[in-house]
Design a protein around this nucleic acid. Structure first.
Lengths: 124, 124
DNA sequence: GTTATAGATGCGGATTAACGCATATAAAGA
DNA sequence: TCTTTATATGCGTTAATCCGCATCTATAAC
């Protein structure tokens, strides 16, 4: 039961649902999540970790980058239709749509990627 | 999105999952929930309200009793298989099994039902 | 080795959640 | 009306959560 509680807890946060939303589009490194959601590095990293700990994300390292992606098997563990339900619910959401738009312009290339964003990202 | 967060939040608590578990067996008044989970009146009432506010329960009044039951439509709103998933996960859980056992002996009849339980229910 | 950089994390403060205690509310009966 | 009783709720305390700041870690290039 503890695992079930943990899973639901991971899903009961707006930031984390927004992260799932953009990861449904494509895999992302931390700095891309920062750009897409317009949030700080700490916040992106922490919430990605929470989703990872709950078994919803896969992590792949590529040089300095930590690249997270949806773990569809993990998301199906308790609820077979969880992926679709989240996607469907966020489809019509304004904030989620904005995130997806910003994601298109987000990129991990270019020096000082995080440093640049660090100053841009507001406290939110 | 706020509603989705609220729904997951309602599910991310052990007490509330235990309540769903026994309500899957049958409808219950507050004092039966107290007996089945061996918790205080405040705790039972508050967590039932939380599940009700999230749209997972139906409420029917019968005299002094507030009788809560699973709202299957409400539980299917976002996740069609939520009811089954919770039931299945709690099936093999020790605590959940104990609750179901105590539920069999729980009853709402008899004077001083709550008063009696008030003194029995530990802080937990 | 040194430096630069992406990401993780310890700490502290602010917000929120959970629960017990006491009390309020409301239905039923006398 | 007055009492009893099942449930709801305001308040205060404790614990958990979230996040920013600063710092640490680890990879990569030089």
């Amino acid at each position: 039961m503890r695992y079930l509680v943990k899973s639901f807890k991971a899903l009961s946060d707006e930031t984390r649902l927004r992260i799932l939303n953009i990861l449904l589009e494509r895999e992302c490194c931390v700095c891309e999540v920062m750009q897409a959601l317009d949030i700080s590095q700490t916040r992106a990293s922490r919430n990605l970790s929470a989703l990872y700990d709950a078994g919803f994300l896969k992590l792949r390292k590529d040089g300095l980058w930590s690249i997270y992606s949806i773990d569809r098997e993990g998301m199906k563990k308790y609820l077979p239709d969880l992926v679709e339900a989240v996607a469907k619910e966020l489809e019509g959401n304004k904030l989620a749509r904005q995130d997806r738009e910003r994601l298109k312009k987000a990129e991990r290339v270019g020096p000082g990627c995080v440093e640049r964003i660090r100053n841009i990202a507001p406290a939110a």
